[in-house]
Structures are given as C-alpha cells and as structure tokens.
C-alpha cells in the first residue's frame, strides 16, 4: 500500500459520490512509526486506506476526519506521550506526531 494509492482511493471515492478526507503526517519527533508525508485516506463510511502510525492513532484520526468532512474545515492533530490523550490514543513508542487532516472537495 503506497501513499499515492491513498490518493487514488480518494479520487475513486469522490467519483462514486462519497465524501473523502486526506490525513498526512507533517511532523514527527522521536521514534514515530511513519515518516513525514505518510498518507491515510478516509471516506464518509469510515473506510480508510494507508496509515499515519503503527495503528496507535488511526482511530482518533478517522474521528477527526469525520468532523473535517462535515465542516469542510481542516484540522491539525497532535499525538504523543505528552498529550493529555496519552491514556486513550498515544504512541506506545514514545514518539510524537503531528497530522494534518483535510477534506477533499
């Protein structure tokens, strides 16, 4: 699954009338599992392809993507051990990651 395949899925979803959002890792600190530029595509049924971590934060990113698809307003999310959400969705590896989520419309 390459990052560009995530882009291809967005095009296909939009063509079949679905809403779609693109999440991209924009910054990492420490031992984060996926490098800057990693893409995850999400649609309005919750289907997703690609990844922005090793599975640690994908759930939270999908939830944010639903909001972004509804509002059309992009979001910046930050995850890491210092985050107050560490107990729920943190990176077990101790890294920190910033993710940009944007609707494709």
């Amino acid at each position: 699954m390459s990052d560009t395949q995530a882009l291809d899925h967005i095009t296909a979803w939009r063509a079949s009338g679905h809403k779609a959002a693109l999440a991209t890792v924009v910054q990492t600190w420490g031992s984060s599992p996926r490098p800057a530029g990693s893409h995850m595509a999400i649609n309005d049924t919750g289907e997703f392809i690609g990844s922005v971590s090793g599975g640690c934060i994908e759930g939270a990113v999908i939830n944010a993507a639903r909001e972004v698809m509804a509002s059309g307003k992009s979001q910046i999310l930050e995850f890491g051990v210092t985050n107050e959400m560490a107990w729920d969705v943190g990176l077990a590896c101790g890294g920190k990651v910033r993710v940009f989520v944007d609707a494709v419309e």
Binding site: T4, L7, I10, L22, F100, V104
Partner: peptide, 28 residues
Amino acid sequence: MKLGLLSQLQSRIAAKAPCALVTDTTTG
C-alpha cells in the same frame, strides 16, 4: 484540498515528474 488540484498532482505522479504539494497547515 481541491479535487482539481489533487488530479493535477496525480497526473504529475503518473508522469514520474518530481513535484511537491505545499500546504499552509493553518489555512489549508
């Protein structure tokens, strides 16, 4: 992201032409 910009990006990727997508993360 605008769908039109995405399709331009995809045609560059398909043509194997190196390029960058630059995003202002505060405004989108």
